[in-house]
């Protein structure tokens, strides 16, 4: 059977199930993004140092790999996803404080925020309307992500602004691909757990926002 006919060929029950997962995912995504924003404002208010960002990312990664998959099928999974997104929001606050100190910082943050929203809504809308199966991109996306992480590690030592820009650009493209990939997996019934689906989409949005901030901060600054 042609993959494009999967949705049409789904039984009524499967389509209802996919729609339910999609609805729950977007509800939980909105709630976690709102909670993240609150935590970011809180961390900016108390003046958390920049190192908090890396500590938060590492802690969120550990929770996302070892705790979330084990709790995603129970109600405690919701608590874990709020903990992860709260931690990431808390870490993000320290980065936002740094950008706010720049002369055009508020404009850069607002532009990155608007850009992230447009990218997410546009790509989600595209995946939802075309109903294509984008799961063929899986291997390519994870391979691309590993290359980008290797370049990121190399740039910690090399400190090349051009490589930093290239890495941020690469992350935006790969995360955009992940939005298509994750959304189509929900529609096609490949992802049936809305907590894990929320986690994937949240990470894509978070990474696009951070990378846009970096690109706009470098390209929009006078220094």
């Amino acid at each position: 059977m042609n993959r494009y006919e999967n949705v049409i060929a789904h039984s009524g029950g499967q389509v209802v199930s996919s729609n339910k997962v999609l609805k729950n995912t977007y509800l939980l995504l909105s709630a976690t993004l709102g909670f993240s924003a609150l935590m970011a404002v809180f961390s900016m208010a108390i003046g958390v140092p920049p190192i908090a960002y890396l500590v938060a990312v590492i802690a969120a990664m550990v929770l996302g790999v070892f705790v979330l998959p084990r709790t995603a099928n129970s109600t405690s999974g919701i608590g874990v996803i709020f903990l992860i997104t709260g931690l990431l929001g808390f870490g993000l606050g320290s980065i936002l404080s740094m950008y706010l100190a720049l002369p055009n910082g508020p404009q850069v943050i607002a532009t990155a925020f608007a850009g992230t929203g447009i990218i997410f809504l546009g790509l989600s809308g595209y995946a939802l309307t075309t109903k294509r199966d984008f799961s063929f991109m899986g291997g390519f996306l994870f391979a691309g992500m590993m290359v980008v992480v290797l370049a990121m590690i190399a740039n910690i030592f090399l400190q090349m602004p051009a490589l930093s820009l290239a890495v941020s650009g690469g992350i935006i493209l790969i995360m955009s691909g992940f939005i298509l990939f994750d959304t189509s997996r929900i529609i096609q019934g490949g992802e049936t757990n809305y907590i894990m689906a929320t986690y994937g989409l949240y990470l894509s949005i978070f990474n696009i926002f951070i990378s846009l901030l970096q690109i706009l901060g470098i390209m929009g600054g006078d220094e």
Binding site: V55, M61, M137, G138, G139, M145, M152, I153, I156
Partner: peptide, 27 residues
């Protein structure tokens, strides 16, 4: 810390890459 986070990310990504490179449908 940034290197630790990067290396951890590689460890996290590797199994997912292996899974999807084998199980992805052909384009």
């Amino acid at each position: 810390l940034a290197v630790v986070a990067g290396v951890m990310m590689l460890f996290v990504l590797w199994p997912a890459y292996k899974h999807w490179s084998v199980n992805s449908p052909k384009a």
